[in-house]
Structure formats: structure tokens, C-alpha cells
Design a protein around this nucleic acid. Sequence first.
DNA 1: AATGAATGAGCTTTCATTCAT
DNA 2: GATGAATGAAAGCTCATTCAT
Lengths: 190, 190, 190, 190
Amino acid sequence: MSKTDKRDDILRAALELIAENGFHGAPMALIAEHAGVGAGTIYRYFENKDVLITELFREIETRIIPVLLDGYSLQKSINERFFHLGTVMLRYLIENPLEFKYLEQFINSPFGVVHRRDKLMGKNERDVFRELFEDGISQQVVKNIPLVILFDLAFGPLLAVTRDHILDFIQLDEDLMGLTVNACWDSVKR
Amino acid sequence: MSKTDKRDDILRAALELIAENGFHGAPMALIAEHAGVGAGTIYRYFENKDVLITELFREIETRIIPVLLDGYSLQKSINERFFHLGTVMLRYLIENPLEFKYLEQFINSPFGVVHRRDKLMGKNERDVFRELFEDGISQQVVKNIPLVILFDLAFGPLLAVTRDHILDFIQLDEDLMGLTVNACWDSVKR
Amino acid sequence: MSKTDKRDDILRAALELIAENGFHGAPMALIAEHAGVGAGTIYRYFENKDVLITELFREIETRIIPVLLDGYSLQKSINERFFHLGTVMLRYLIENPLEFKYLEQFINSPFGVVHRRDKLMGKNERDVFRELFEDGISQQVVKNIPLVILFDLAFGPLLAVTRDHILDFIQLDEDLMGLTVNACWDSVKR
Amino acid sequence: MSKTDKRDDILRAALELIAENGFHGAPMALIAEHAGVGAGTIYRYFENKDVLITELFREIETRIIPVLLDGYSLQKSINERFFHLGTVMLRYLIENPLEFKYLEQFINSPFGVVHRRDKLMGKNERDVFRELFEDGISQQVVKNIPLVILFDLAFGPLLAVTRDHILDFIQLDEDLMGLTVNACWDSVKR
DNA sequence: AATGAATGAGCTTTCATTCAT
DNA sequence: GATGAATGAAAGCTCATTCAT
């Protein structure tokens, strides 16, 4: 088994346990057990639990980006670009409920606050959503309100809807997903 | 000191500590200390920590309802009613950051899932928002999509925006609050 | 059982275990067991293991001082005062081997270095030995060399001899104790 | 690289780490890293950590003996021989603080007790100090008290003074070193 | 009714040692 | 011979809950 395999096993175990039980329902010993490694082994790959949690977030984030960009074209209209990103993201999260649940845990935690602050400070490289909104504002297609609020108008409902789907409060099909993303667009468009 | 006083002291202490430090930053002994009671005393009023947490949520919920209803009239248009409820709620949360932080903690936790499930199952009495959306749909002013999604479109951004204000990512004044609520309205209206 | 009793039980258990096995041979769980209390109970009396260790040192120190001062008179000659302090200390340590072993552990550890630095900086109240040497120097009875060296000349051998007695390398009786203290005096006297 | 080289690298790394951080601040993996070898390699040269520690002590001891004997003559007076050994040792330890710190760690540990017991039992070959004191006693120049006590009177202060120098409590120059060794002589001479 | 000292299971993390490569 | 990834027992410490007073 290669080095990478074990690291992946640990990340997968952490994803499953934290997604289902939260950070506190995922003791390191249990993660190790689910990963099929010794408790100490985790610490060869991750300095401590916080680092494991943060790395796992980055891993998921990294996994999503190419999915979002697949078929995404800056040539299309702002509306089309928004629709593309919104539906692709919604679909991805619904098809990967573990990753969604993990993201939710992460975002609603001190880790997430730090991450969001860094993002808003522009510490993060190219951000496809920020770019979209900035283009939309300059083209006078999107409401001229603070970026932060645009994010909230777009992501707030998307995450909420995904959660409700995963919790079985609704069944999102392609139609409902389209309606939802369009409704979000209504809130950000001029 | 009456029985009710002590109960209130405990709830207040729990609110402050949990809002600022999360559930795990609020040990029962600390809550007791802040409430000025013995650790064991809490258990005379609340069966265990989970019950305390849930009761505190209901308390806050109960406190908000009359605020929302003050000046609220079923005679006004759906749009006006939505604007009233949205801005009043936004203002209330911003002026009561402890309660908002607590609600966030609660919603993003296993407790919150249970609560939301109960609500959607209609276990809860009269719900002013459900009523508003149902009226809006029947008057063909609001999009005819599942209630759950309408909730998400309206509350998702409001909560997100409040959090960003409290985290100092934006400064919400009355103007921005109005813009935000109107943007939410754009997403639910036909 | 009074509050003080339990604290004393813990200190006694710590003394025994650390004296015999060193700091690392005395896990908190074992100290708790020997003290007849729960593991968590120790933390009601001592913030952490370091504090327990330091407090125990002070306790022992405090216990020795009145013994040293019993029958000690500033009216007597420097030589007599030195002999009194030296033999009383030697006798006390030999009769209380656990305390001696503990002191040795403590002195030869990072704790001890800090403590010694504080002492030399004069942070500690009245120090009977410092006083003795300062009097001796001003009366030109004791060698005019740095205080630190005088301490080393006097205590170095006393502690070494005590350890050898406890380890059964020698059997110190009153005669040998007298000879030893006198030899130490020879090294500090002019 | 020869077998001996690797062994030496390990011993050197162990010396540095243990001297600065104590036995518990020197994990085997770190020693291996500092020595530039694999963790498992140490176990080809030393059965376990205890053996490594003991061997390192012997190594240092062996290194000091020729230094002590350089210029040492049994023809000189006891006083002169004592002065020679005392100052040379003091100087050596001060100039090699790592070795001193290591010796201190070793002596004040269960390892040291065993070693001292062996030494006093006469298990060790020729001992230059024992010889000196025995000569001194038979020439009636040194106090007729047990050898062990003479060792303590001579080494107790020397080690204590060295430690204080290394901890920066005093600055030992050649003069102070001479004074100190002479003071020790005062305590052992008749 | 109210207390708060006591509990002990459970947490994260370290490290001497092994062994497949 | 040499490696270093893997191990898992054991450490210090926390905290929800109990119960004698």
C-alpha cells in the first residue's frame, strides 16, 4: 500500500465520521479504526486534528473546482454563467452528500470563519464566483451591493436547499434545481 | 429568589456562554457559575444539557414572535408583509447578536435538524411565515415552488447576512437591510 | 473527610510516588489511585501536574523551616550557627528520606532551576542561609567569595552525603554527621 | 561511511539532544534524525534507549580520564595533586557544557545510582580519585573519614559550581576556579 | 430545595520499538 | 545492513452528571 493510500484512507474515514457525527463525534481513535490504521499513524500525515480538518476541507474544495469549471465559459452571459455555476454546484453537492455535510460542519465552525475571512480579504487566488459578481456589477447586470451580500444571496439558499434535500425535506430533481438557481439569480440580478 | 428567577439566570448564562464559545465551550459547571447557582441546581430545572439547550432555543423563538407581529397586518400586500417580517427579523437579530449566535449554533447541530423536521411536519402551531407564503402562492404573487424552498430563499440570505455583519465583514445599516430584504423578495416573488 | 484531608492525601501520594519513581514514574492516574481519589479530583486541588509538583515542593520547604529555626540563635557565633543549621538539616533529611528524594528530583529539574534563579534574585523572603553567609563575610569569618559558591560548598556535600546514606553507601550516625558538617565549615570559613 | 562513524553520529546526536532537553526531550526518532540515520538503525548499535544512555555515559567518562592525567604526577604533594585534578576537571566541564549537562542528567537518574553503586563496590578499575584520597589518608594529610564522604566533599561543590556557571548564576574565571578548588581542599584536608 | 465536591470515561497526542522492504 | 512507516499503550486533562450534606 503506497503512502498516498493511507493518507487517503484517513481522509475518507474522517470525511465519513465527521459528516455524519460532527467534529466531536469523530474521535481520532475512531477515525484511525475506520481507516484501518493505528491511532498514531494519523499523526504521520497530519500534525494534529485541526490540521486534518483543514486539509480535508482544502481537499474537497480542490475536488469541486474543476467540476465547476467544466463547460464554464467567460464568453457566455452573466446569467448563463451564474446558472451554470449554481446548478453544477447544487448537483455536485446533492450527489456527494458526505462532502456537503462536511462543508457545512466546517463552515459553521471557527475554522470556517477564519477561512471566510481569508477569502474575503482576497487572500485566495482566483475566485470564480467573485469574478462573476464583479463582472456582473461592471456590466450593470447584477445589483450594485457589497460582494459579501451577493455571496449570501446566492449561496445561502443553495446550501439551505441542499441540506433540506439531504435531510429528505424535499426531493430536488433537475427542474427544482433549475427553479432554485433561477430564484437566486432573481435576487442578485438588477 | 423565586424558582423562575433561577431558571432564567441559568438560561441567560447558557445563552451568553454558548453564543460566544459554542456548546463545547460552555461546560455545565461554568454555566452554573455564571448563573450564580450550584452545578447540581441546573439539573433541578433541566433534565440534562440537551434539554437545557433545546429549552433555550424555544425561549428565544418565543421571544421573537411578538416582535415580528408588532405592526404586522394581514391586510397589507404580500410584498409589504414580507418586507415587514424580513426587516424586523434582520433588525432584531442584529440588535441581539447573542441570540443570533445561539440560533446559528443550534440550527447547525443535530438539535436543529430535529427541530426543523418537526416544524416542516407541521407540528408547530401557527407559523407566520408559512402563512405568508401560502397566501402569496394562492394570490399568485409568490413563486409556486415548495414551501421549504421558499423558506430557504428567504432565510438563507438573511441569516448569512446577519452573520457577516456580526463578524464585521459588512456594516448593515437600514439602507442595506432594506436592499437585502428586497433582494430576497425578488427571489421569492413571481 | 474534610477538604484538606483529600488535598493532603494527594500530596502524600505524589510525594511517595515521585520520590521513588521520579516525575515520569508518577502518572496522575496512579497518584489518584494511591491517594484513594478519582483521577479528576486531583484537578480540583491543583491546576495541573506542574502546579502539583511545585506546591509539593513549597509544602516540604515550609515544613523544614521551623525545624531549622528551633534552637537557632543569631547570638551565637557564625561557626555555631552553621553547625546548627547543617546538622539539623542533615538529620532531618536522613529521617525523612521521601522528602529528600523528592527535593533532589525537584532541584535537578527545570522546576528547580527556576526556583533557584528566583531565590538568587532575592525574590524569596528571609533566607536563613543567605543571612548567615552575609553575616559571616562581614565578620570576616567566612571566605569573601560569591554567595552562590558558598551555597555550593555547603549544600553540595550535604545533599551528596544524604543521598549516599539513603542509597546505603554509608551509614551516617551523629558522629559522621558532625564530621561532615565540620568539613563543610572548613571549606567556607576563612 | 564506516560502522564506527554511524555509531559516533548517534552518540553525538544523543549527547546534544539529551544535554539540552533531558532524556524525555530526546525521542529516538529525533536522535536518529540529528544523526542522519534511520530510526531503526540506532537499534543495530544499541539494544535500546537505556543502553544508548549508559554507553554514552561511559564514552564521556573515558574521554575525561586522559585529560585529568595529562601533567598529573604521583610524585607531587597530595595538595598539588588534588588541585591539579580539581581545576582540570572544573575547566574541562566548563569548556564542555554539553558533556557536563549530560553527566548531570545521568547522575540524577536511576542510571546514575546503579553506576555509583558499581563504582563504590570497586567494580571499576583504577580510580584516580580513590587513589588520591587513600594516599592522602595514609599520609595523614586528608581527613580520616569514609571515602564516600570525601568524594562528596570534593565533587558535590565542583558539580554545583559548574552548573551555576552554566546557568549563568556566576562567571567562573581561573581565579574563582582556583578559590573554589582550594575551598574544597580545605574541606578534605586535615 | 440547593449545593459543589467527586467521579471516571473519554479525549488528543507522544514515542520506544518493530519489521517489511 | 539500513531504513522509516507503522504501531498502540500510555500520558495529562476535561466535563456531564451524581449524591451526601
